[in-house]
Design a protein around this nucleic acid. Structure first.
Length: 472
RNA sequence: GCUCCCUUCGUCUAGCGGUUAGGACUCCGCCCUCUCACGGCGGCAACAGGGGUUCGAGUCCCCUAGGGAGUACCA
């Protein structure tokens, strides 16, 4: 049988890390076993579902490359089908109308709480003969009274629930709209889902859903309940832990494959392997290797993973990414070096593309002033002559290549009998405005000849002025 | 309250009855080195507690504690 998994978010919120991990595992499983991945939007709660959230979900999945083979299907488009099942169940007694008021249910609940019983609906409307005046009824599913439901969960193992603990849950509201546990069952069945991979907050819903599947007369899918993702402090993941919306990570300069790599390692591992390409993940992933305990989100490790993926990304792609962030920061790219060259030079020292854009700013625009501390330390009168020599040599060197630039600098350092560090730092400060940059030959090369010459001239003037001042 | 789930370094994890309990992130040294990174080497750091079972338990069973989920006309 063909594997079919699904991701079924509710558009009552944006796509966050936990849901992405769930989507990822479902997607990986489908890809691994040559199956299909279905996207279904569970929007039966019309009050809280929004168009923007649907957008957030679709955009997020799209960015990550978690492509669906079918859908998105919207549950609100399937109300006729739910109605059909509802009517059939009502006719055959598998479901019934319940006219209980909110007050009655509350009272029942109070009593049960007081006597230490499980809080559950007692089924008092099961055999009600006639409607109650002025009350729009809900529809309840008639759950079996006895026996047990065994969930053979792919990650949890065998979990047993007692039917006596379950109650007759509401499957249609008094306004006629169907509810979650019911629509899931109808959809998973209609869409021929073979593996239900979802958050473990649904483990408790599973026996009820299995009972309804039984009422529908269809087989159960394989269930796999994934542990939760917590915030760095072990508490439930929320806004105060940083970005909630997956798109925020995109905007902060994380690579989608790095995001996936980080997330796949939360609850899953393959020996000691830390870095995975998406293809490797597909090749190696199995739901049986997923562990059972919740894990905490660790931003430090995410950054490290992202850096490792940046180091391994193709120059072209890195260049394209860099352009996006440069533009967003308002840095003009037309008059500077090729972004791909810049990315190549900066790739080993950026944890995010945003950092890369920030750090390579001086390649595209002139800095306002040299960092005073760096100037004080490195632009001293002793380097005036060497710097002039460098300026002259760089202005004349025939080919603007890293190798040649390195040779020039080394040669001049030797001529003045100073070591390369004593000359490299002043050049660095002069051309970047700061004390930190990639290797000096690559830095000079990528900034480009005319900017380098101008900046060296400026630095030379500063030093000359300083020398004059200290001599007088 | 009741039902269900979870518990190895600070964090992510390996382990599937016999290991000096391994790796990764973080942190700290050292090396590489023109700065910063990358990389390399080394260090700190864990089996929640208690009972069993067993010649032998991180691994199996039970209890306790702690954490989480559900108990909605939310999903």
């Amino acid at each position: 049988m063909k594997v079919r998994t699904r991701f079924a978010p509710s558009p009552t919120g944006v796509l966050h890390l936990g849901s992405v991990r769930t989507a990822l595992f479902s997607w990986l499983y489908a890809r691994r076993f040559d199956g299909e991945f279905v996207l279904r939007i569970e929007d039966t709660d019309r009050e809280r579902s929004t168009e923007e959230n649907v957008r957030a979900i679709v955009d997020g999945l799209d960015w990550l490359g978690l492509d669906a083979d079918a859908g998105p299907f919207f549950q609100t488009d399937r109300f006729d089908r739910y109605k059909e099942v509802l009517t059939a169940w009502l006719d055959t007694g598998k479901a019934y109308h319940c006219y209980c008021t909110k007050e009655e249910i509350d009272e029942l609940r109070e009593q049960q709480l007081a006597s230490g019983e499980k809080v559950r609906y007692d089924g008092r409307c099961r055999d009600r003969a006639r409607p109650r005046e002025g009350v729009d009824p809900v529809v309840r599913f008639r759950n079996p009274d006895a026996g047990e439901v065994v969930v053979n969960d792919a990650v949890r193992g065998r979990v047993v629930f007692d039917n006596a603990q379950l109650d007759d849950l509401i499957i249609a509201r008094s306004n006629g709209t169907p509810t979650y546990n019911f629509t899931v069952v109808v959809d998973d069945s209609d869409m021929k889902i073979t593996h239900v991979i979802r958050g473990d907050d649904h483990l408790n819903n599973t026996p009820r859903q299995m009972n309804m599947l039984e009422a529908l007369g269809v087989d159960n899918p394989v269930y796999a309940h994934l542990p939760m993702i917590l915030g760095p402090d072990g508490a439930k993941l929320s806004k105060r832990h940083g970005a909630v919306d997956i798109r925020d990570y995109r905007d902060q300069g994380y690579l989608p494959e790095a995001m996936l790599n980080y997330l796949v390692r939360l609850g899953w591992s393959h020996g000691d392997k830390e870095l995975f390409t998406t293809d490797q993940m597909i090749e190696l992933f199995d739901i049986n290797d997923v562990n059972q305990s919740a894990s905490a989100f660790n931003p430090d490790k995410l950054r490290w993973i992202n850096q490792q993926h940046i180091i391994r990304a193709s120059t072209e792609r890195l260049g394209e990414q860099l352009v996006r962030f440069l533009k967003r920061s308002g840095i003009p790219i037309t008059s500077g070096p090729s972004p791909a060259d810049v990315a190549e030079v900066f790739r080993e020292r950026a944890e995010t593309i945003q950092q890369m854009a920030d750090n390579s700013r001086y390649c595209f625009v002139d800095f306002d002033a040299i960092d005073p501390k760096a100037a004080k330390k490195h632009l001293r009168p002793v380097v005036l002559e060497p710097l002039k020599a460098v300026r002259t040599a760089l202005a004349e060197t025939p080919d603007w290549e890293k190798k040649e630039i390195e040779t020039v600098i080394k040669k001049i350092a030797a001529e003045f009998d100073i070591n390369i560090g004593k000359l490299g730092q002043p050049i660095r400060v002069a051309v970047t405005g700061g004390a930190v940059s990639p290797p000096i030959d690559a830095t000079v090369w990528v900034i480009g000849r005319s900017r380098v010459i101008d900046r060296l001239d400026a630095a030379i003037q500063i030093i000359a002025a300083r020398a004059a001042a200290s001599n007088s």
